[in-house]
Write a protein that binds this DNA or RNA. Structure first.
Lengths: 140, 140
DNA sequence: GTATAATTGAAAATCATTATCAATAGTAGG
DNA sequence: CCTACTATTGATAATGATTTTCAATTATAC
């Protein structure tokens, strides 16, 4: 139960949420895992601490955590149901194809690209989404 | 039934696929639509030409077209089940939040970013995925 | 034409997610 | 500490998306 777990729970509390054993277990999994997890994987891991936990509660808690931007959804070829702790500010996701390890990197230098695209297309750019994959140093 | 439709059907044929009325209708929808469509939307549109068409055939045909990289899956907040014709080479997707219109733009200038990320993280970068959204000129 | 194998649609099965609901348990206030 | 209030819980059922199965049909090569 890390300091960071407590920080996430405090954020939940600020959303009129109560701090329960189920949420503690789920948050603890998300805080301490550096790869994308599906709801069922989170369910399995969290039940090691809270064996009574139900899958539905996992879905409900993930929804709150995503709303608080503490976690993000990860999109992959195999599917888009995995979640991972979110980065801060303008960070993007880099995933290892082999071990699944996730790394966050800064992407400030994309602004030039977006303003160019905006001018060329006449769009007012609002949002963007960048995800990169490859093979990490350990898996090479 | 455009020239481009024929071109897509020829590509399908090169995959040992037969050219059928169902596939013709589905390909025609994908070739002529510039916004992301869900399988059911494609089903509804294609049935205007081939009323006997089944939804399962839509799923099966989309699978082939994705394999041939003629279409791409579009990922959005609301879900990731929509498809759109693919761009050529290193093109990325720009979507209008209001009308759904899709525009493809070139993203060659991302290479510098990726080599920087590769060096900083020790990853061998293999693939990336960029999607941008905003409001198009017509919707502003 | 005919034979062959791919393709079809319908129905059923699967998988992910969401809604319902009565029982439980945080939390604020005394 | 006790109580009341309301959020949360897990089980079950319902929904929605996608895949599988299968017998009938049909494109295509010969």
């Amino acid at each position: 139960m890390s300091t960071e777990t407590d920080h996430w729970l405090a954020k939940l509390r600020s959303l009129d949420c109560r701090v329960t054993g189920a949420r503690r277990a789920i948050v603890d999994v998300m805080v301490s895992t550096l790869r994308a997890l599906t709801p069922v994987e989170i369910y399995d891991l969290a039940r090691q601490n809270d064996p009574h936990l139900g899958l539905v509660t996992v879905y409900r808690t993930l929804e709150k955590l995503e709303e608080l931007r503490l976690i993000q959804r990860v999109h992959q070829e195999q599917g888009c149901q995995a979640f991972l702790r979110a980065g801060v500010g303008h960070q993007h996701l880099l995933l290892c194809e082999r071990c699944g390890q996730a790394v966050l990197f800064d992407g400030d230098d994309l602004d030039a690209l977006f303003s160019r695209i905006g001018q060329q297309t006449g769009f007012e750019i609002k949002d963007h989404w960048l995800q990169v994959s490859g093979v990490c140093a350990g898996c090479k």
